[in-house]
Amino acid sequence: MFREMIAESADGTSRRRIVRRSVVNCQKDAFDTARKTLSARRRQYGRGSVELTRWVEAQAKVFALCSGESSFDPPAQPGPDWLPLERHDRHYQIAAAYFYNGQYLEAASRFDAISRTPDSPWRALSRYLVPRSYVREATINENDREYHLRLALAAFRDLAGDRAYVAEFPSVPGQIFRIEALLDPGATRRRLERQIVEAPDDTTFEDVRDYLYLARPPELPFGEAATEYEHWRWYASDQKSAAIAVARWRTERSLAWLYVALAQAGPDLDSTTHDEILRAAEALSPDTPGYVNTLIHRVRILGLQGQADDGLRLAEDAERFGLSRSEVNRVRLAAAEISTNW
């Protein structure tokens, strides 16, 4: 699957690139289920039977769609004279074909119909696959993302209320967590953070893994829908964006972009640029929000320029800026680090 994205270059211009997004269409569970079903149908119908042959041919068509490169050729509808079990199998195979072809809403509709068929052996699994189809419609087809994610969340929460069902499908709670994280990653991260801090004995490896994933730097927002804050937040989290941050600050002369330029300034910037942002930071009033952080970065940048003595003097004078004792100590700690490096 291809998607066009717009990214900003260091000079402030835009560039377009095409990104291929891969999706693991047929998971291991799908092949395991097919293998078990094949064994069961072979025992029931017999080797070489018409019924078994039809099942195998249909399943081959389903799995041919796994790569996403085959033309859509779903299994045919079951015949009126077929055995009930064979008809149930075929309806499930057709729904799966639509799912693997990326037609997730059609797949959801078909899985829903199966889930309402009392004597279908695929009823329970289809209840699970309805919200899974909605999740893919939201994340893969990127169609009305929030609406379909909330549909999926409501369905999975309904399934989670059935203890017997969760015992059979233990991944339901994980699906709920994933959707909640997609809808509000910040709230989910904060909830995990509280759990890790306040209830470490109840924290699992998966909790820590999920927290670290959610705490990663955000992806660069693309397209016209991205807000100024989203761009700023991404560059503030990216350790390789100093040149872009400086370019944005030079254009906008805003305090927010000066903060990012100071924070990202490293040895890759030339001394003229370092001097430029140092002068801008020096001109700030001590009552500027976040002033202590600008002092810390001024000390650090002076160290990068080989001016550790100037950085130490700035730290020694930190008290005159009306900082608290803890803030003064933070500035002096930065000075201690550059004196060690120097």
Rank of each mutant, 00 (worst) to 15 (best):
R163K: 13
R250I: 02
A108E: 02
L149V: 12
R136V: 10
S115I: 01
V172P: 04
R16V: 06
Q175W: 11
N293K: 08
Q264K: 04
R17V: 07
Y134Q: 09
R190T: 10
H231E: 03
H88M: 08
R3E: 13
P78H: 06
A7D: 15
T227W: 02
V331D: 03
F31S: 09
A10S: 14
A263E: 01
Y98T: 02
S67M: 10
F111S: 01
A308I: 10
R20Q: 11
A280T: 01
V172T: 07
P80F: 02
F31Y: 15
T203Y: 05
L269R: 02
E282N: 11
Y100R: 13
A95K: 00
D162F: 05
G174F: 08
P131K: 12
E193Y: 12
D119I: 05
T294G: 07
S171Q: 12
R123G: 03
W82V: 04
S237R: 05
R190F: 14
D119K: 05
E228I: 01
R150Q: 12
P118T: 01
R42E: 15
N141Y: 03
Q175D: 13
D201H: 07
L83N: 03
G79E: 08
M1Q: 11
V246K: 00
L83T: 06
Q77L: 12
V130W: 03
A138M: 03
V208F: 11
S324W: 10
S9Q: 14
S9N: 14
L255M: 02
A113H: 01
R300S: 06
D268C: 08
D238C: 10
R250A: 00
Q239Y: 12
V197K: 12
S14G: 02
H88E: 08
W55V: 03
N25P: 05
A280N: 00
L38P: 06
F205W: 14
Y147F: 14
A152Q: 09
D310R: 15
D89T: 11
A40N: 14
Y104K: 03
S115Y: 03
R123A: 04
D210S: 13
E219Q: 09
W122F: 08
R123Y: 04
D287C: 09
V23T: 14
D210P: 07
W234Q: 01
R313W: 04
P118N: 02
W249C: 00
L182C: 08
R216V: 04
A107F: 01
F31G: 07
L83E: 09
S326D: 13
N329Y: 06
P74R: 13
F156P: 04
I6T: 10
A167E: 14
D238T: 09
D210R: 13
A10W: 05
S285R: 14
S9D: 10
L83A: 10
A243Q: 09
A334Y: 03
Y211F: 15
T203A: 06
L278Q: 00
I114S: 00
T251Q: 12
V246W: 00
L149M: 10
F222H: 13
P121M: 03
T288G: 07
V292Y: 12
A60Q: 12
V19R: 05
R320G: 04
P200K: 04
L302K: 11
N141S: 14
A336C: 06
N141H: 06
E142A: 14
Y259I: 01
T251W: 05
H231F: 02
E180Q: 15
D158N: 11
A58M: 01
R320F: 05
L269S: 01
A95H: 00
I179P: 07
